[in-house]
């Protein structure tokens, strides 16, 4: 059952692929009217590091899901500072699909994302902080637990702490116990925090 179209593998015509394939030409084709042309340009820009900023800019404007996916793949492959900055900008998008795609892309760039993680986790916008915690969910990095503990010790927003506890239930170690107890005390009147911290503490006991 094909519920949602998430990827397109339509073959490119010979004419399309024979046109100018240099970086400048490819970057120009990111604005083409035809989604197929934009998709292939985005894919071929994988060898053009100077395209990161433009790709990141296009990401927020692109309304074709398949083109957007290729842009994300290319940005992840390029993985430079501008690419990461473009992905961070997507966290502020009002479109959940784009935010989720950016989160998944950033999870694949642990070494690039790690240096900006604390900034994201203390962003003034609580939604961005929540998405930053979501990045940690599949971020393969040794500091993940430390970052989560900083969140539940310092963040005043209930839902930011809530998502951090949810993740600590999965990845937390004995080192999390004191912070979880402090959080529970800090939000003593919140049933969800009580529930989530009890669950996380229970899992620590089982571990």
């Amino acid at each position: 059952m094909a519920l949602i179209k998430t990827q397109t593998d339509e073959p490119m015509t010979e004419d399309e692929h024979e046109e100018t394939r240099d970086c400048k030409g490819l970057m120009a084709r990111l604005s083409a009217a035809d989604p197929n042309t934009r998709r292939w340009a985005a894919r071929d820009l994988m060898d053009c590091p100077q395209a990161s900023a433009l790709l990141a800019e296009r990401l927020s404007q692109e309304d074709d899901i398949s083109v957007r996916e290729v842009i994300l793949t290319t940005l992840t492959s390029l993985g430079d500072d501008q690419a990461v900055a473009g992905l961070v900008a997507c966290l502020r998008s009002e479109e959940p699909a784009l935010r989720n795609a950016a989160i998944e892309a950033m999870q694949r760039l642990p070494d690039k994302v790690a240096p900006i993680m604390r900034a994201l986790l203390t962003d003034p916008d609580s939604d961005v902080r929540i998405f930053a915690v979501s990045i940690l969910q599949s971020l393969c990095h040794p500091e993940v637990e430390t970052w989560l503990l900083e969140v539940i010790d310092q963040d005043s927003h209930l839902n930011v702490c809530g998502v951090a506890v949810d993740l600590l239930s999965e990845v937390g170690t004995e080192a999390a116990r004191a912070s979880l107890l402090r959080l529970q005390a800090r939000f003593a009147d919140e049933p969800y925090i009580r529930f989530a911290t009890d669950l996380a503490l229970g899992r620590l006991r089982e571990a």
Partner: peptide, 14 residues
């Protein structure tokens, strides 16, 4: 709302 693969809005629309 925020879920991978298909978010809450998309699910409800479908």
């Amino acid at each position: 709302i925020n879920m991978p693969k298909l978010d809450g809005y998309g699910f409800l629309r479908e």
